[in-house]
């Protein structure tokens, strides 16, 4: 038991150093570092105009008030930002696998998946996170909501990462699958910025199951408006289960890893 705790401590330490070093690399050029963050905030702000126009036509959309839409956008942006900042490489993991770039992580005595996905950070994702919190402050905020929002950001960010890793892991079996993974990741981003109330039937069921937007965004928004311990627990439990599943799939695939020997020969 003690060794497990020590293992986790050491893993966390290495992960933190890795992220710190990756951030340092991005900060070499200060001007472009800041510009990336600021422009991402501006970029996201553009969508407020979309919702101002829509709410000028109708006072509620899919059961959401304008303030709730801000919260929806806030949660979407911060979960996206969290995942892309800390785990940037999970969104191009398919390339890492097919180009044999897992080698250097495989010879280190640390978790391969964690090392691989934390080896780079996305600077603009800092802008996404900041934007998420700005929107939170624009809605009714108190300490409890702030903590809850942060909790959902972490859970949601991890779920988005899990989803990306699962799709990227397909590369172990079928070779290049980056387009499949990109398509799947865009799916989450697109759905998570619209209220679930506008969807009906099958699409709504999908959003709470296979496409995990329900867990990453819809339930969190409801919890921030009207807190329920049971649904919050479901979000946490689901994120843990999905993460375990992700590690399982990745490590199962790793047995099929072919380093840089995977080639497609043309006749």
């Amino acid at each position: 038991m003690l060794t497990v705790v020590k293992d986790i401590k050491n893993q966390l330490k290495v992960t933190c150093i890795s992220i710190k070093y990756a951030l340092m690399r991005e900060m070499i050029n200060k001007a472009s570092f800041l510009m990336n963050i600021i422009f991402m905030i501006l970029n996201n702000s553009c969508f407020i105009i979309q919702w101002i126009v829509i709410y000028s036509l109708k006072s509620e959309i899919g059961g959401y008030s304008f303030k709730q839409i801000l919260l929806l956008w806030g949660i979407s942006a911060s979960t996206y930002g969290f995942a892309h900042f800390f785990f940037k490489k999970s969104f191009s993991l398919s390339d890492t696998i097919t180009n044999g770039k897992l080698d250097s992580f495989l010879v280190q005595p640390k978790n391969v998946l964690i090392s691989a996905i934390t080896s780079e950070v996305e600077v603009s994702a800092i802008g996404d996170m900041i934007y998420g919190y700005i929107l939170l402050f624009l809605s009714d905020i108190n300490i409890f909501k702030f903590v809850l929002f942060t909790l959902f950001t972490i859970c949601g960010g991890i779920v988005i990462t899990d989803f990306a890793v699962i799709f990227a892991s397909l590369s172990f079996w079928i070779g290049k699958s980056d387009t499949v993974a990109d398509t799947a990741n865009d799916l989450i981003t697109n759905f998570s910025t619209y209220p679930d109330g506008i969807f009906k039937g099958l699409s709504k069921i999908l959003l709470y199951t296979i496409i995990p937007v329900g867990i990453t965004t819809y339930i969190p928004v409801k919890m921030l408006t009207e807190f329920k311990i049971s649904l919050t627990a479901i979000v946490i439990v689901m994120s843990i289960i999905l993460t375990l599943l992700t590690f399982g799939i990745f490590y199962k695939g790793l047995k099929k890893y072919s380093s840089s020997n995977l080639m497609i020969s043309k006749i």
């Binding site: 959309i61 799916l187 759905f191 619209y194 506008i198 009906k200």
Partner: peptide, 14 residues
């Protein structure tokens, strides 16, 4: 298709 589908639902609702 997903993007268009989302907008279809949105305007269908409005």
């Amino acid at each position: 298709t997903v993007l268009v589908f989302i907008f279809f639902n949105l305007w269908d609702y409005i």
